[in-house]
Amino acid sequence: MRKSSPGKRIVAVGTLVALLAATTAAPALAATADPVQQHLDVLTAQDGVPGAEAVLQDGRRTRVVRSGTGDITTGKPFPRNGSYRAGSVTKTFVAAVVLQLVAEGRVRLDAPVSRYLPGLLPDRRITVRQLLQHTSGLYNYTDDLDRSDPETLRHRGAEPAELVAMALKHPALFPPGTSWSYSNTNYIVAGMLAERVTGRALSDEIARRITRPLGLHDTYLPRRGDERLPAPHATGYVPIAGKLVDFSDFDATIAWAAGGLVSTPADLNRFYAALLSGRLLRPAELAEMQRTVPADLGVPGAGYGLGLGTIPMSCGRFWGHQGGIIGFTNLAGVGPDDRGATVVLNQNPPPAGANQHLLAATEAAVCS
């Protein structure tokens, strides 16, 4: 979750390309008493998002609400709990891996990054905590990606060091620890740190520490060249020249530890429930994860901890993360009384206003 430029609206964190959204004619909204359905219908019928799905978890009760279509060519509905690219929700997974290393005594939160990755960053004052909290001042490398033609990114992929080098061509935004600014570069570095400390690929560490223990069978971090999105999945669309183009399959290593994760809504509900109930981290590390600083997320009272955002809702606080990557936008996390929700749209960048309605749908899911 983060705020975009001057406007006060929630936008998908980690969005790789900031393009003008395509406009779509909006049919009349059907009457429904279900507030979640109402908000999803606003997203599809009013905003013009092709399809939307909310998967709600309240104890052992799971509810799936869908609107629109998963494929504008065939008219097939949004698949129930299909795979999709979760974007910056990846950051919560990476932060959890790093905090497990903290618990093992292999990483110190307030140690300089240079202790683990000597010579990578020119400012030796930047700490591990500042990476995870977005207070490092590192420039956001995705701001340098070509915004004019997403097709140039489809097969591009990248190595982590290349992405960091893109960021380091720019001066720091501020001295470390003095302000907050969302930067995907932070999590590329955090992923590199985890690999250096463990001696294993980040994708393997996420599997070993999180997805296998929790039984998240449909969640993984793709490696270079793995472009296929597993079926079933909604088609992920990006607006190009006024048309919605299928971007379901592409090399997401250009987002890697900052946003490359593939998952399903049910898996993400299970992940956030396990994380926030203490199944993945000891109380000390979970408390550090939830120690927030004020963050410019477009919502008054919002904060950001270590890979975990929090925003106030009408029934209490919501903990989780928003994510956007070419083709998909989502918001996942846990609200009051441990009610979990993941809401997915099969378009990114989304149309104007859609992010506000995504937030409204999530609030309806955890507060209704």
Rank of each mutant, 00 (worst) to 15 (best):
A158G: 05
A22D: 14
P300Y: 06
D123P: 03
R279Y: 02
P230K: 09
A165P: 02
V343C: 04
Q57F: 01
K169Q: 15
N140Y: 03
L286C: 03
W180N: 02
T32I: 05
Q347P: 01
A257Q: 05
R147L: 05
V13E: 10
R154V: 14
P6D: 07
V189I: 12
P150R: 00
K76L: 12
H134D: 09
P350S: 12
Q322W: 13
N140V: 09
P300E: 13
E159S: 07
E53Y: 00
R129N: 02
D34S: 05
L216S: 01
V89A: 01
T152W: 02
G316H: 13
F271D: 04
E285R: 00
D149N: 15
T142Q: 09
G301L: 08
L286T: 06
A31D: 09
T185R: 03
V65T: 14
L359A: 06
A287G: 05
V94L: 04
G177T: 06
F78V: 15
L16D: 12
N81K: 04
Q290K: 15
E363I: 02
T73R: 15
D338H: 15
R223A: 13
Y139L: 01
Y304A: 02
L345D: 06
I210A: 07
R212T: 15
F247H: 08
A365D: 06
A33T: 11
A266G: 12
T74R: 11
H39T: 13
